[in-house]
Design a binder for these strands. Structure first.
Lengths: 334, 334
DNA sequence: AACGACATCGCAAACGATTGCATAAAAAAT
DNA sequence: ATTTTTTATGCAATCGTTTGCGATGTCGTT
């Protein structure tokens, strides 16, 4: 009365050896077609499914890939996950999903759990709290292919999928300048996050190329959430900026809410630009000018890179960095 | 030069048997504390991690649970997933994530893949295309605990987490009636989906209890997406409804867009009520009156139920149905 | 001095599947 | 009729871990 039907069960019932059953199920040419048919038929009727766990143990590799993201309930990551799922599913892989909750400790635990699950590879966007990459180095030592996306370590020897943050930020700020805005503020994110840093750099370059000095009164670094945007604009308010370039859409939204709250009008008094083109951007009032990131495509690209690395496991792998293009979407906040 | 450090490696290095190492790592009382310390120390320095795959094989159970959802990039499911992750992570389980893309075939494949991964349990919200439950019955025969949420089979003998859809719909429509709306239309979903059916039932009951006959001119059944809402209102338009109760928020949004497009004003000419309280609801112009579903809580509840069932595997399990409360959120579309 | 009680540890089988090698029978070639 | 080849199947080891049982060795007890 075993619950799971095993290969041995089939063997016993048919009075053949387990090896024969295994070969028959894998359509090995050594097995005669009559026996093959008998075995296939029984397997079918008993609803036999090979035990992936045992197969993995034997083959020293599973058909699962790990994914670690800071949070799930977030347009961007959800879309990325969607892209990852579609590609890996095609390739016969399943996703082991972990969430870091932006915590370094939880990220470390996740890598350990996933490693001991023997994932074939790992796709990661690192947490805000994460500053060192020891846990990922440990995975590389075990030859587990690794692909980072969006939030990456700049000098980590692995494949990455990023967007051209600097360029995107540049084009947004440059557009603001060309539109005649003079006092352009920046609400930035934590500068140890490469995306936050790059966006700040793009902001600076745009100003410089237009011969506008970077005034640090207009620059604030905080978190990546809506409340951070509100807090930041509160402090910025005294300097009367006529435009705000936020590190991402939630922060931009936070700023918008605050701007409206203090009685200023958008974009007449203050223009706002976000980053990411979250769903919220097209829906908020007024609709937010922002920089679109191809989220689904990033997930799909990361998954494709990972699948490649897994397949050619033994050949010398080279870390490839894929930079996807951003796109400035002009709406009503500028 | 093995990549993975195994228990046997430790054993060899320390000239003890693998069983001793195993027991030491599991803090078995038979092992003396000096040897324990030696083993622990080496395990630490060699960055040893037990192979989950081998453990799973031996123990006939993994520390993973499967999750099948129709799509990921959707506020509701993403939030549910968030809830599931938090609870299962606490319990030491990892999520194997599959997406059905609303397709019956893909759902069937997913159940097979997950079963052969030997998941300890499964959480599912069924696809729109799914009409029979054979694949889930097959899982139950293998004694894999199953919990459905949101979209469930009404008469399937397993635990479920649902919201009181009928009651939620009733309260929304009742509110519309009390507010003085007379010609209340319903843009419904596929009636084989229990949630769509229940919401329609709530709509009917509200009308009936207020002595308003249900006029099927005002009722349309379609899909669950934004475009379906637009299409539906197009056809509804001729009957001049003064209020629309949509089966969910995307459909409501589709209707809103269409209503604005034909030059009607909301809520003056037509009121709109959605269902789910997606992020979009609070952001769209005008902000949408809708019925809030506790998405995160549903995920967390489903996960808790599943954890319980897994732990008391052998005792007779009873299917428990947990019904969470909805909440009418009144915004500006009514 | 002899015997049982403990404390430590190893042996070996097991989980379910795969696979190189050996073996047996049947078919083909001489 | 004998040898060679082909075809079909079984044996046994292996992946990494766990665990019941048995084998030591060390004490304390009478």
């Amino acid at each position: 009365m075993t619950v799971h039907v095993t290969l041995k069960d089939l063997a016993k019932r048919l009075k053949v050896s387990p090896s024969t059953v295994s070969r028959a199920l894998n359509d090995h040419p050594d097995i005669s077609s009559p026996t093959k048919k008998r075995i296939l038929a029984l397997a079918e009727s008993l609803d036999y499914h090979p035990d992936n766990v045992a197969q993995s143990l034997k083959n020293a590799c599973t058909k699962t890939i790990g994914v670690i993201i800071p949070e799930i309930k977030h347009d961007f990551f959800a879309s990325v996950l969607d892209g990852i799922e579609d590609i890996t599913h095609e390739a016969g892989y399943t996703i082991l999903l972990c969430k870091s909750n932006e915590s370094y400790e939880r990220e470390v635990i996740n890598t350990k759990v996933l490693a001991s699950h023997r994932i074939a590879g790992l796709i990661v966007s690192i947490a805000q709290d994460t500053k060192d990459s020891l846990h990922f180095q440990s995975l590389q030592r075990r030859r587990i292919p690794l692909v980072f996306f969006d939030r990456v370590f700049e000098d980590f020897p692995s494949s990455k999928v990023i967007v051209n943050d600097e360029e995107g930020a540049f084009s947004a700020v440059n557009y603001l300048i060309k539109s005649g805005y003079k006092r352009i503020a920046h609400i930035g994110g934590p500068q140890h996050l490469s995306i936050a840093k790059k966006r700040f750099q793009g902001y600076c370059r745009a100003l410089e190329e237009n011969n506008i000095p970077v005034n640090m009164d207009y620059v604030l670094f905080g978190g990546m959430y809506e409340e951070d945007g509100g807090v930041a604009f509160d402090r910025l308010h005294q300097f009367k900026p006529d435009a705000v370039f936020a590190v991402n859409d939630p922060v931009a939204v936070g700023a918008i809410v605050k701007i409206k709250a203090v009685g200023l009008s958008i974009p007449k008094d203050v223009a706002v630009v976000g980053f990411s083109d979250n769903a919220i951007a097209s829906i908020i009032d007024p609709p937010l000018t922002t920089i679109a990131q191809p989220a689904y495509e990033m997930g799909a690209s990361a998954a494709r890179l990972l699948m490649d690395e897994i397949q050619q496991k033994n050949s010398q792998r080279k870390a490839v960095v894929e930079t996807l293009k951003t796109r400035l979407i002009i709406r009503k906040t500028t």
